[in-house]
Design a protein around this nucleic acid. Sequence first.
DNA 1: TTAGGATATGCATATAAGAGGATATACTAA
DNA 2: TTAGTATATCCTCTTATATGCATATCCTAA
Lengths: 126, 126
Amino acid sequence: MELDKLYKCLSDIQRIRILNLLMQGALCVCHFQEILDESQVKVSKQLQYLKRMGLVSAQREGMWMVYSLINPSHPLLVANLNALVALKEFHPYFTEDINKREIILKRFTENKAECPKVVYQNSDCG
Amino acid sequence: MELDKLYKCLSDIQRIRILNLLMQGALCVCHFQEILDESQVKVSKQLQYLKRMGLVSAQREGMWMVYSLINPSHPLLVANLNALVALKEFHPYFTEDINKREIILKRFTENKAECPKVVYQNSDCG
DNA sequence: TTAGGATATGCATATAAGAGGATATACTAA
DNA sequence: TTAGTATATCCTCTTATATGCATATCCTAA
């Protein structure tokens, strides 16, 4: 992947927040909507962008579309995604987003029918 | 600096090449023109962009405008600039650009009047 | 089959980049 | 002052992003 394309993926705060969340595990579109507090269209389009650029993959699970981070091959992408996690205390959004994600996952462990298994299994919370 | 702004600075191949060159030392606009083989307008505008975003500073030296990298404060910027240097073997442009820069600097050490001192002093070549 | 939830896409619009030509500005040298 | 070099800015055009509304598609459940 070309360097400028890679950085373009990271040059939008919504996409950064999405990638930061995906570093924790897969999520459905509706979860991003809830966590980022953004419209369905907006979230869906940013996910399409990341998919088109090869950073994420989508897998249908019944009604839901589960997005996952594709194991990043470019060392600069790996470094930056890890940096997002490492720097989360400097960026209030990141920590809040991850906290919101954990609350959602806790809901799922109490009512497994609410979303695909892949979202809450292999999760470190709940 | 906001993360998305930081990544926007890096999301253009000309700006990446400019930053890669600035990691080696200060340069005048005309040197970037020569090394990148781009028009004066294009180079000047990208330098303005980086200046506006606070990544580089400009200092007039007679006829020349010398651009330097501002000591980066954001850990992600530091990491990415260092990564550019470390990854230069994967990106033919970077190595070629640095080689062209060294050839230009050698010219200066033979004819010091050709550009401001700050460009060729403290240089590791020539 | 019908209704409804989840998601994607088409269309329109606003704004930001990117590029190029022409010109203005700043400086030097004669 | 004049000419010439280096650089910045203005104007215009094209393209890419970002956003919202409406609607289409895919799936489930009844």
